[in-house]
Design a binder for these strands. Structure first.
Lengths: 335, 335
DNA sequence: ATGAAAGCGCTAACAA
DNA sequence: TTGTTAGCGCTTTCAT
């Protein structure tokens, strides 16, 4: 059997409270006893049982995280940031993939509640009323990651998606493009879909360019073939000179499609992606893209959640982190 | 406060054991009481505290997983398989990135032990003696994933790396190539490095091709720029007609480098990758690669671990799952 | 400074 | 079938 606090107490010839003390407030234990206890702990390789501790302290030092799909490089990068921050702050992460399925989400929420996680990191997907109600009921501290909520007072960390999409489009416009297409996530996705689409539209408008419905192709976020999306857009709008893709993977699908069709990038069509996932510097040509600081988003989210768990007042409920356009080889300036 | 079993008992006017029974062996409770209890549970939205349960049952229904880095698409895919299997079998996953750092690994092992995880999924990296000793001591059920151990009696799930590398190389040879290079992980990596390298060497030998040291470039697995690796290999061996890259990301770096140099793929050089990560079908040209069933590896590993936790005898300690060559556009047959 | 004892929320004997 | 009771391994009063 695993050694318990009793075994340590017995071996050190003290009471279990003393053992507990050397672990939690060592200064309150007289040196000689402390040494005996430490010796016993070492000898028995004793490690406190986190379940027993959590039962009393009401803290598990465990955070729940829900994401749509870890296979998505974007989320993987965020998770890594979360993990590093968690290590620093003493948390473990339980990670769950929802596939944006509400049943799966609620099922995981339930698991988190039963396992008494200290807080929840909720990534992407808008917060719908049922979900908010459930969160309130469970009284679970939460931080929204790469999503936010204007209706509810929920802390969040993300980039300014509308502005980022605006910047991507404006970058193309300033490079001389007039016929600019977009591959967008569906408008039902209020963050990566709607907002970025609005940024695109605003950029066109503010630069007095005409907006055409045909220049935009909407895809369902999950499991849609990026190659097919590219094909569909180009069929609708064959005369584009530039395309803004809502994600790097979508941009890669586009690159791949254009290559097959013998259309030169960036000579005939410029392509700008979104996210700056790792492989975007290995595409052909190297992808110009709007970089999100994914790692920092995840890292910051955990710090924010930790502060919240600690009962600290949040100076900034909805945090916006900076994005940045990384110019590589897939875009060119039009004469 | 959260409702406890006592609140339910009080409301339903039964003892706490009865409540416990309707949750654990409902058939042993008389219908009328059961209904009252169920009603109270529903009304109070009562959910059992997993810490308290675990303290008694010695089961947390939580698994620890250590991987080098979740940002690596290969691992992300495996994790997803693990997660789905875990959901099916009622486990949660605590995921930790080690960056192949032993201190980090041991630190996480310790956390897992304290948190009383039911088992451990250990991904990649060979099992060194210290680590094995620690596992033995902790008496933690473990399954090795994408790695294995010949010295120790540890269950594992992976492909046959040597054979897969052999097949990749043989595929190139059978397509008429005689001057075949390899970008390999360092030999200190006994799985993805050494074994695949051996497969490459064996394929050459069995086909009576001469082996040249210059045709192979070794990289350190982590944080090495794939682009630079490609450059180094081609400098050492400018006359290759085909290259076998030990991972798809490495292959992408090679594709990118060759493109910059104006070297046509597959016309001048054929490239075959390894893993079949998602983006490998979006490269230019589309990548021929050795596919590993990552998702299944993860999924199977959890099933295997679950069986082990359940005390079942393992019919097959070291499981090999099939790999497969996916022929796409980055390789061609030499006349 | 230290130990005895109560109790976190639950399960599992043991009685009834 | 049901309730009472004794823990699971720990922290935390409360005495001493």
């Amino acid at each position: 059997m695993k050694p318990t606090i009793r075994d340590v107490a017995k071996m050190a010839n003290v009471s279990i409270s003393t053992v507990s003390r050397v672990m939690n407030s060592p200064e309150s234990v007289v040196e000689s006893k402390k040494q005996r206890v430490l010796g016993a702990i070492e000898e028995l390789k004793y490690k406190p049982n986190a379940l027993a501790r959590g039962l009393i302290s009401k803290k598990t030092h465990t955070l729940g995280v829900v994401i749509p799909d870890i296979r998505n490089a974007y989320y993987a990068e965020i998770i890594r940031g979360m993990e590093d921050a968690s290590k620093k702050l003493g948390y473990s992460l339980i990670i769950c993939n929802t596939d944006a399925d509400r049943n799966r989400l609620f099922s995981y929420l339930n698991t988190f509640y039963e396992k008494q996680v200290d807080g929840l990191l909720y990534t992407s997907d808008a917060v719908f009323p049922d979900y908010y109600k459930e969160l309130k009921r469970l009284r679970m501290p939460v931080v929204l990651v790469s999503t936010h909520s204007m209706e509810y007072e929920l802390p969040s960390v993300k980039i300014d998606d509308e502005q980022a999409a605006y910047d991507a489009t404006a970058f193309l416009i300033e490079a001389g493009h007039r016929s600019i297409g977009m591959i967008s996530f569906d408008l039902s996705d209020s963050i990566a879909g709607q907002t970025r689409y609005q940024g695109y539209v605003r950029a066109l408008r503010e630069h007095n360019l005409e907006f055409s419905k045909d220049n935009v192709f909407f895809i369902q976020e999950y499991y849609h073939d990026p190659y097919v999306a590219a094909e569909s857009l180009l069929r609708q709008a064959p005369n584009l000179t530039a395309v803004f893709a809502s994600s790097d993977v979508l941009a890669m699908g586009l690159l791949s499609y254009l290559y097959e069709k013998g259309i030169q990038v960036p000579d005939e069509i410029s392509v700008i992606g979104f996210d700056n996932i790792r492989v975007s510097s290995l595409t052909i040509p190297k992808l110009t893209t709007v970089a999100q600081p994914m790692y920092q988003i995840g890292y910051r989210a955990v710090e924010k959640l930790d502060a919240r768990i600690g009962g600290e007042a949040d100076p900034q409920l909805r945090e916006l982190v900076p994005h940045e356009i990384i110019v590589r080889g897939s875009t060119r300036r039009l004469k």
